[in-house]
Computed example of a mutant assay.
Amino acid sequence: MSRILMRIYRKILLVFAILICTTSLFVMAGLLSSSNISFFKFKVNGDIGAEVFLRIIGYENPLIGHALTGANMDFPIFSTGFQLLTNVEMKDIRSLIRSELPGFMAFDSNFIIAEDGVDFTDIPVESAPPMDVLLQERNMAAKELKELNNGKVYSGSSPSEKAVFIYHTHSWESYLPLLGMEGAENENEAVDGKTNITVVGELLGQELEKRGVGASVDKTNIGLMLDEKGWLTPRSYEISRSLVQKAMAGNQKLNYFIDLHRDSVRKDSTTTVINNQPYARIVLVIGEENKNFQKNLQFANELHKILNKQYPGISKGVLPKKGVGVDGIYNQDLNPNSLVVEVGGVDNNMKELKNTVEALAEAISQIYWKAEEVNG
Rank of each mutant, 00 (worst) to 15 (best):
G151A: 00
G151P: 01
V153F: 14
V153Q: 14
Y154E: 10
Y154N: 14
Y154W: 15
S155A: 14
S155L: 15
S157R: 11
S158V: 10
S158P: 00
P159E: 06
P159A: 07
P159W: 10
S160Q: 11
S160P: 00
S160C: 00
A163Q: 07
A163N: 13
A163P: 00
V164F: 14
F165T: 09
I166Q: 03
I166D: 05
I166Y: 03
I166W: 04
Y167K: 01
Y167M: 12
Y167C: 03
Y167E: 11
H168N: 09
H170F: 10
S171Q: 11
W172H: 09
W172A: 14
W172T: 05
E173W: 01
S174L: 06
Y175R: 08
L176P: 00
L176T: 02
P177L: 02
P177V: 01
L178C: 03
L179F: 08
L179E: 11
L179Y: 09
G180R: 10
G180H: 13
G180L: 08
G180D: 12
G180I: 03
G183A: 03
A184P: 00
A184L: 08
E185D: 14
E185Y: 03
N186L: 06
N186E: 14
N186Y: 07
E187P: 03
N188F: 04
N188A: 03
E189R: 13
A190T: 04
V191G: 09
D192K: 04
D192W: 04
G193P: 09
G193V: 03
G193W: 03
G193E: 08
K194F: 12
K194V: 00
K194Y: 11
K194M: 11
T195L: 02
T195K: 01
T195R: 02
T195S: 02
N196C: 11
N196R: 08
N196A: 08
T198R: 15
V199K: 07
V199C: 02
V200G: 08
V200N: 07
V200L: 13
V200S: 15
G201W: 10
G201D: 13
G201P: 02
G201L: 09
E202M: 10
L203V: 00
L204V: 05
G205Y: 02
G205A: 04
Q206W: 01
Q206R: 15
L208D: 05
L208A: 06
L208P: 01
K210H: 05
K210W: 08
R211A: 06
R211D: 07
R211W: 06
G212L: 10
G212C: 11
V213P: 10
V213G: 12
G214R: 12
G214W: 07
G214Q: 08
A215I: 05
A215K: 07
S216N: 07
S216C: 04
S216F: 06
V217Y: 06
V217D: 06
T220I: 05
T220D: 13
N221Y: 12
N221W: 04
N221F: 09
N221R: 11
G223W: 07
G223T: 07
G223L: 13
L224H: 12
M225H: 12
M225D: 15
L226D: 12
D227H: 14
D227L: 01
E228T: 02
E228W: 00
K229N: 14
K229E: 15
K229L: 13
G230C: 06
L232C: 00
L232Y: 05
T233K: 14
T233E: 14
T233G: 01
P234A: 09
P234R: 11
P234F: 10
